[in-house]
Nucleic acid binder design. Sequence first.
DNA 1: GTACTGTCGTTCGAATTTGAACGACCACTG
DNA 2: CAGTGGTCGTTCAAATTCGAACGACAGTAC
Lengths: 157, 157
Amino acid sequence: MTDPRTDPRWLDATEMAAWRAFLSTSHLLERRIEEQLKAAAGLTHPQYEILVRLADAPGRQLRMTELARGVVASKSALTYQITQLEKAGLVRRATCPSDDRGVLAVLTEAGMSCLERVAPGHLEIVREYLIDRLSREELRAMTSAMRKSEEALRSSV
Amino acid sequence: MTDPRTDPRWLDATEMAAWRAFLSTSHLLERRIEEQLKAAAGLTHPQYEILVRLADAPGRQLRMTELARGVVASKSALTYQITQLEKAGLVRRATCPSDDRGVLAVLTEAGMSCLERVAPGHLEIVREYLIDRLSREELRAMTSAMRKSEEALRSSV
DNA sequence: GTACTGTCGTTCGAATTTGAACGACCACTG
DNA sequence: CAGTGGTCGTTCAAATTCGAACGACAGTAC
């Protein structure tokens, strides 16, 4: 068995601490956010993210595949969630004019106002447990770090 | 409607970019890790994390509740996963000598060697898509940031 | 001892996610 | 035009997660 401190397949103490902190924090944040959204609006976090992406998109609509990429969900999970949001009247499906295979997810007016109503409470959690706790420098470094990782992950598929 | 750029309930562009990068990266990393673990060992990420925590614990054993805190899982999710790991022979349950309500999850020899076999491939992913992409400074800042957030989240429960 | 309050881990049904398989359609080749 | 490979979104069964409810036990008060 090789020495964990020199074997490149392992992480040293600093690296392991970084990784575990990242992992725990992302899980804890996810839990906290889920709890807040459920209590405030009966939404799940994936559903909220879908609304955000649609609100930002031109025409407040996106192709299913593109939306799935954006929110990092599987195709089948997105199909399910869009169906749920459609039942709630926050999103509707439309046929894609340029591609008969395609389906557009469109944010309804009800969906937009729901998002506007829910966003402040949600972002307050993000502030309280993450953003507001970080120095300018930490925020900058974290963004840079996350972007590097994200790019590596997205370009590897 | 208030101006999003001055309303403290919203995030400015820099903060929002940081948050979104964090969110996307954590989801993408989770996906990538899940895929690697499944292919290499038929393990899920939660299962792997359980093995790691047990391996680190004194006597390679932990109370269910303590383990649930460590891996950030609900009690029922942990019950389920420990049952799965028990079927696989990687973990066994033991009664807690000091508290008849308690159950100890104990890492078996098979569990320990499974972990040793799987860890390198797993950590290689963590390196490739996160750790090795960061500068010393980014790693330091990210760790500091994550710890602050984690502490806030854990102490709020 | 009895009662009370809280913690422990499990169980249950409901909701969600996953990956594979599928039919429909697109774009290109010959 | 027929054929071919690839993409699109959906469907399905299986696996996993969640929260509420539960019985069992611990710790304390009286």
